[in-house]
């Protein structure tokens, strides 16, 4: 499974006015990787699918704030 969040280290100038955020993140959700959805993918139970917004784990992209560490599933 591809990761849903990537990170990079932006250039930090010695003259930056604020304390630098050394690592920045961006989202790369599941649909970027799937291509044309293949038949017969694994499915969630209906009750869980209703809650998650999709039938397929392959298309589920969790999101939590990157500013709150360790809360991600």
């Amino acid at each position: 499974m591809p990761t849903h969040r990537k990170s990079y280290h932006p250039y930090i100038s010695p003259f930056d006015p604020c304390p630098p955020i050394k690592t920045k993140t961006y989202e790369t959700p599941a649909q970027l990787y799937l291509g044309f959805q293949p038949k017969g993918l694994d499915q969630y139970q209906p009750s869980e699918a209703l809650k998650k917004g999709t039938l397929w784990p392959a298309l589920y992209s969790p999101y939590t704030s990157p500013y709150e560490k360790n809360k991600r599933e």
């Binding site: 591809p2 990761t3 990537k6 990170s7 961006y26 790369t28 970027l32 990787y33």
Partner: peptide
């Protein structure tokens, strides 16, 4: 560019 950003680290 999108492909570059999609790459796994």
């Amino acid at each position: 560019a999108v492909e570059i950003l999609k790459e796994e680290q």
